[in-house]
Amino acid sequence: MGEVLVLVEQSDGGVKKVTTELLTLARSLGEASAVWVGPGYSDAAAATLAEFGAGTVYVAGDAAYADHPVAPKAEVLAQLVAEKAPIAVLVASTADGKESAGRLAVKTNSGVITDAVAVSPDLIATQSVFGGSTVVHSKVTAGTPIISVRPNSIAPVAAPGAAARVDVAVDLSDAAKKATVTGRTVAAKGGRPDLAEASIVVSGGRGVGGPEGFGVIEALADSLKAAVGASRAATDAGWYPHQFQVGQTGKTVSPQLYIANGISGAIQHRAGMQTSKTIIVVNKDPEAPIFELADFGVVGDLFTVVFQLTEEIGKRAH
């Protein structure tokens, strides 16, 4: 069986959920190997990679790899592709993941497919395009298939692996060192799950009425341990930070549950949430197009409905 390389997405020395999804997918294609780039490889990271079936973990642990954006990841992967001849390389559909994939594709003269939601054992990728309205099957026809996979597309399944550590060192090219990361600024996160990875997302739009209105949305989100999202009308108005925007020009999310409050359902918003597994809508306008996507919808004022819902969830949790 051929080897499948999975580029690990890290957070605070640990492994993000999307990597466990990618390892699960990799095991269905061949032998899963994880690739860790940067310092801080920890026992906790090793344990997670082992739990989800990584046979080998290539650790490129030089601190210098974190000093430059993207290019070091592509150079480490390129060296492993040359040495190990894997049957495919999987990365997460994040900014870093996709850009690493793009640079790797140039370096190895290989095709790249982005935003796959599934990959079959014969390496045919399923892409959900145009905001989820069209399903495409595509295939890399030259070089090593490089595929970026959207978070929340594959249910992670544990299966023990050895996670045998193999250290790798790559001399970075001069080009890779031309851009330098000189600072990292962490926005207040408030302990909510990452928007792209969350299994529940609670969103607010113009109907929320103002920045204070988002308090109601956040309370509901916290009762469900959900991430908070927003429509562009809300982020453009400055009611909620831009990084939480869902849609065409914001994040694409595909959670188990998406609750849209006071959002009309413009095509550009739908492009970012249409593939959510279950969609719940609260909107006072029965004609709002977002109801077309609803598995369950309530026509009503969001302030009363969402408030009551949050209360009910609190009661039922006890």
């Binding site: 549950l257 719940i280 309530v298 009503g300 819902l309």
Partner: peptide
């Protein structure tokens, strides 16, 4: 899907739906 008009119990109805589908 199912769309209902809020008659004072809209939030509770969503909670019912969520527990039926094991979200809560």
């Amino acid at each position: 899907g199912t769309v209902v008009t809020d008659a004072g119990d809209g939030g509770a109805k969503i909670a019912d739906y969520l527990s039926e589908h094991k979200f809560i």
